[in-house]
Simulated scan of single mutants.
Amino acid sequence: MKEIIETDAAPAAVGAYSQATANGDLVFTAGQIPMTPDGELLADADIDVQTERALDNLVAVLAEAGTTPSDVCKVTVFLADIDDFEEMNRTYADYFDEEPPARSAVQAGALPKGVGVEIEAIAVRE
């Protein structure tokens, strides 16, 4: 049965979606953007700052679901500009340094609210 995951430690959903859903052991997060839990958008910040905020949001949603970054099996990173990959990757590595999950990173045509990065994950909880 589907379970809805919500936390005040990450930005609230602003549309017809949940921060995450779970079904049994699987947790699926929505894409997390560089927005603070109180709604401050960091779209004009450098990509490392944007990546850190998006990953902090992701970690908060995962924690609410009873998981941690070490439980993540797959991550998808959407970049507004693929030339930001190296800088994003340096910050990303701080969150997934040991036994990192599988990952795809793609340039998207446009991201919500004009941000430079959006990150989603699939985790397994035990």
Results as ranks from 00 to 15, higher is better:
49 V>I: 14
22 A>W: 00
18 S>D: 13
39 G>T: 02
93 A>R: 14
59 V>S: 09
83 D>K: 12
1 M>S: 12
70 S>M: 06
2 K>I: 11
95 Y>I: 07
101 P>Y: 02
16 A>C: 10
66 G>P: 02
25 D>V: 01
102 A>D: 14
124 V>H: 10
93 A>L: 11
100 P>N: 06
62 L>K: 07
52 E>W: 01
97 D>F: 09
16 A>S: 12
4 I>Y: 08
13 A>Q: 05
66 G>F: 01
101 P>S: 08
77 V>F: 04
97 D>R: 11
112 P>T: 02
108 A>N: 04
87 E>F: 01
15 G>P: 01
15 G>D: 14
36 T>P: 04
85 F>M: 14
86 E>Y: 09
57 N>F: 00
103 R>Q: 15
12 A>M: 08
23 N>G: 07
115 V>D: 10
89 N>C: 02
83 D>R: 13
9 A>R: 15
46 D>N: 11
78 F>C: 14
107 Q>S: 03
70 S>G: 09
53 R>Y: 00
47 I>K: 08
112 P>K: 04
22 A>I: 00
31 G>E: 11
53 R>D: 02
68 T>H: 07
73 C>M: 13
44 D>G: 07
106 V>T: 12
85 F>R: 15
125 R>I: 00
22 A>T: 01
70 S>V: 05
33 I>R: 15
19 Q>H: 01
22 A>K: 10
69 P>W: 01
20 A>H: 04
9 A>C: 06
58 L>S: 05
54 A>Y: 00
24 G>W: 02
21 T>M: 10
